[in-house]
Structures are given as structure tokens and as C-alpha cells.
Design a protein around this nucleic acid. Sequence first.
DNA 1: CAGTATCCTCATGGATACTG
DNA 2: CAGTATCCATGAGGATACTG
Lengths: 128, 128
Amino acid sequence: MKFLEEIHQESLSLDHKNLEPDDENAKRSSCPVEAALKVIGGRWKVLILRELFGGIKRFGQLHRALHGITQKMLTQQLRELERDGLVDRHVYMQVPPKVEYSLTPLGKTLEPVLNSLHDWSTKYLTRS
Amino acid sequence: MKFLEEIHQESLSLDHKNLEPDDENAKRSSCPVEAALKVIGGRWKVLILRELFGGIKRFGQLHRALHGITQKMLTQQLRELERDGLVDRHVYMQVPPKVEYSLTPLGKTLEPVLNSLHDWSTKYLTRS
DNA sequence: CAGTATCCTCATGGATACTG
DNA sequence: CAGTATCCATGAGGATACTG
């Protein structure tokens, strides 16, 4: 279980020794899981990704599919997903404008992760 | 891929019809993945869980292990984890107080999920 | 159509002090 | 030791209006 590997360099040393002064809790996520959650966290990311797993979508399609999201949030979240390399943005130079969003290869690698979350949730979080 | 199953009942109907008035985007997460992220989301949850995967821990141990967390946040996050059934809280009736936290069986079922997030992050999110 | 540009609210998260 | 109790900053998220 790789999730636990890092425990034993951080917390083991803290269990018998007392607090250490090498504490520079600056920017680096002490844990890869944290980093992953930053990328797919937030209120809309996974919902957007879910839509895109269904194929290429235009901005308006996403806007309608995600009931309640505002244009600002949709744009913003899409930009973040784009910046993180999960989503590809294709602008057609025409008028009226047409912009299509799709998953990048990297974005598609998220599938097992999202399935894992999905499975756990449906299996164990069945208290609505 | 179970993650995609629900797409085809929500977005398919929205793709050819136009917006529907049955839009009651109230409380229910439209997606189990969302629900899962609510439980393990936030800044500290996974870090706390990571510590507890290492075994039973006292409040003070957690407080020291999670550099930078405040007592308030630690208490709050632990209560939420407890309310969600992931963490068990055992109070020893003695003075000075002693409280131990541990993973419940449900909490332990999160291991594959966290491993999945961890694996993805280390494999594909290697841009520090 | 697919955005910007403002302005605004409020929950998340935090600092500090006190206590059974 | 393991908390409460306050007060406070910040920013994520949203409403609304305007535009290339």
C-alpha cells in the first residue's frame, strides 16, 4: 500500500522523538493525495470531467448540462483543468464563436481514479 | 466504467432537448464522486486519515504530526470524520484527559481509494 | 456563442485566549 | 491534555450586466 509508504518517514520519527525543528511546512504538499485533490477538488471539476468523459463538448453544452453553474465558474474551472493539462480547448475561428472542450490523454488517465471514488461512494456511502 | 453510467441518463436527455424546468438542484449530489469528495475533501482530511492509517493516535500526536493545523481545525475535521463514520473516537475518563482516534472498518475501506489517488498523482502529476 | 468585468456573499479556515 | 469560545481574514463561488 503505497499510500502508507510516506507515513513511515514522517510520523514514525515523530512518534518516539518529540517535535522536530526542521519544520518548514511551506508550499509542497506533504502528500501526493493532497496534490491530486487540488486538481480534481472543488465543486465542479469532477462534474465537468464526467461530462467530458462522454465526449467532446461545447461550452454551451457543458453550461446546460451542469445545472446551476455560472458562466464565470464554468470558464474558470475549465481554465484550471486546462492549465493542469487535463482538458483540451479548441477554438474555432469563426463567428459566432465555437469552442470545444475534450479530455487530454492525461485527463483520461483519471478514469480509474474517478471510478475508485465512485465505487467507494456507492458501496459505502449509501446513506443519503 | 461505472463512472460514466450516470452520464447517459442526465446529459443525453439534455443534449437534444433544451433546458428543462424540472431543475431542482437542491441538495443531493448528482454524482457519487461528489459525495466522496465531500467526505475526504478539504485541506486536512486526507492528512489526518493518513496518520490514522498508521495506527491509533492521540489528539496531541495528530496535532504535532500535522504541522500547521490549529486545534480548532483538528477538532472540527475529526468530528466530521467521526460523523461520517470514518473515524472512531475513544475518550478515557481520566485526568488529564486522553482521547484516542482510530479508523473504523469503514474508514479502512478508503485505502484503495487513497491509493488510487496517490498512484495517479505520483504517476502523472510529477510536475512539482 | 462564449466569454469578460464587477460586485458581492458566505463558508472555510485560522489566531488567540480560555477551561474541565 | 484535549478541547471550547471568539473573532477575523480570505477566497471560493455566485449574480448580473456587458461584448467581440
